[in-house]
Amino acid sequence: MPRAAQDVMQSLIFSAVLDAIAALKSASGNLPNNLLRQVQAIHGNVTMADLPKELQDAIAASTRAAFAGLLKEGYSVAPRDAGPARPAPRQGELVARGVDRTPRPSSRGPRSDGPRGPSGGAPRGPRGDRPSGGPPRGPRGPRTPRQD
């Protein structure tokens, strides 16, 4: 009976973690202080080159074993681009070109006017050079006193 993908992945990850811990122990020479120092050096931004050589080797071996285990269980492992080729569309058949044409729910409801406003003219928005839409500012002319 074939095992579920979740069970296969769980066993592969479990064995990879155990192998990594054993590699850290051997890299520290079974000294508790060295082991603690190496474990504390592992963080979210650590790179493969920053890890001890024994741990790097254990990760590489676990990765190879994981792919072999997936293939042994009957799961296919391939890059996304290497998927099965799709047959050419028949004449007159519509083809989706990566555009999702499913309607999306809107929180505001449908628009009653088109994209150019209610009158169908130019789109609403700021005019002029300034973000506020007013005319461009420049030096003002001479001020004249108000005549009451």
Rank of each mutant, 00 (worst) to 15 (best):
42 I>A: 07
43 H>W: 15
43 H>P: 13
45 N>H: 13
45 N>R: 15
45 N>C: 11
45 N>E: 14
46 V>D: 04
46 V>M: 11
46 V>S: 15
47 T>Y: 11
47 T>M: 08
47 T>W: 07
48 M>L: 15
50 D>M: 11
51 L>P: 00
51 L>K: 00
51 L>G: 00
53 K>M: 10
54 E>R: 02
54 E>W: 00
55 L>E: 04
55 L>K: 05
55 L>P: 03
56 Q>E: 00
56 Q>T: 00
56 Q>V: 00
57 D>N: 03
59 I>E: 02
59 I>G: 02
60 A>N: 08
60 A>Q: 03
62 S>T: 07
62 S>Y: 06
63 T>F: 11
63 T>E: 08
63 T>P: 01
66 A>C: 13
66 A>L: 12
66 A>D: 06
66 A>I: 08
67 F>I: 15
67 F>D: 13
68 A>K: 08
68 A>L: 10
68 A>Q: 03
70 L>N: 07
70 L>R: 10
72 K>G: 01
72 K>E: 01
73 E>C: 05
73 E>Y: 05
75 Y>P: 03
76 S>T: 14
77 V>K: 10
80 R>D: 00
82 A>P: 01
86 R>H: 12
87 P>E: 14
87 P>Y: 01
90 R>D: 09
91 Q>D: 05
91 Q>E: 02
93 E>P: 01
94 L>K: 13
94 L>H: 09
94 L>D: 05
95 V>H: 08
95 V>K: 08
96 A>I: 06
97 R>P: 04
97 R>H: 14
97 R>E: 14
97 R>W: 13
98 G>I: 09
98 G>T: 09
99 V>A: 04
99 V>F: 07
100 D>L: 08
101 R>M: 02
101 R>V: 03
103 P>F: 10
103 P>L: 10
103 P>A: 05
104 R>M: 09
104 R>F: 12
104 R>G: 04
104 R>H: 09
105 P>V: 12
